[in-house]
């Protein structure tokens, strides 16, 4: 597969390490959320057959974490964003 890195352009997916659903960005706050909320966050997956937003890490590249929107049936990639930007757009900061 080829991932069009927002900074570096097309790169072979072999340079990346896959993590999983991009919802892993939305980690609850451990001081307020309990076991059930963390359970939902860490374990439950939508696992769609179709468009999937997922985290890839450019380990053999610039070490950027990316959010890749990819179709799990065709493997077509329609969007690639820096995970940091996505995280900020979700209101994450420090």
């Amino acid at each position: 597969m080829i991932i069009h890195h927002p900074i570096l352009g097309p790169r072979d997916a072999q340079e990346f390490v896959y993590l999983g659903d991009a919802s892993l960005i939305e980690r609850p706050d451990g001081m307020t959320a309990g076991v059930e909320v963390f359970h939902e966050y860490l374990y439950q997956r939508t696992n769609p057959a179709g468009e999937h937003r997922e985290l890839w890490y450019h380990e053999q590249g610039d070490r950027s974490w990316l959010v890749v929107t990819r179709n799990t049936v065709t493997h077509e990639i329609t969007r690639v964003e820096l995970a940091r930007d996505v995280a900020r757009s979700k209101g994450r900061s420090k």
């Binding site: 985290l55 890490y57 380990e59 070490r63 995280a87 900020r88 994450r92 420090k94």
Partner: peptide, 19 residues
């Protein structure tokens, strides 16, 4: 060594991007 570094980058970029 490698997996910890990857994890730290995840925390830095995805969880607390403004640290």
């Amino acid at each position: 060594a490698v997996t910890v570094f990857r994890h730290l980058e995840f925390c830095r970029q995805c969880l607390w991007p403004d640290m």
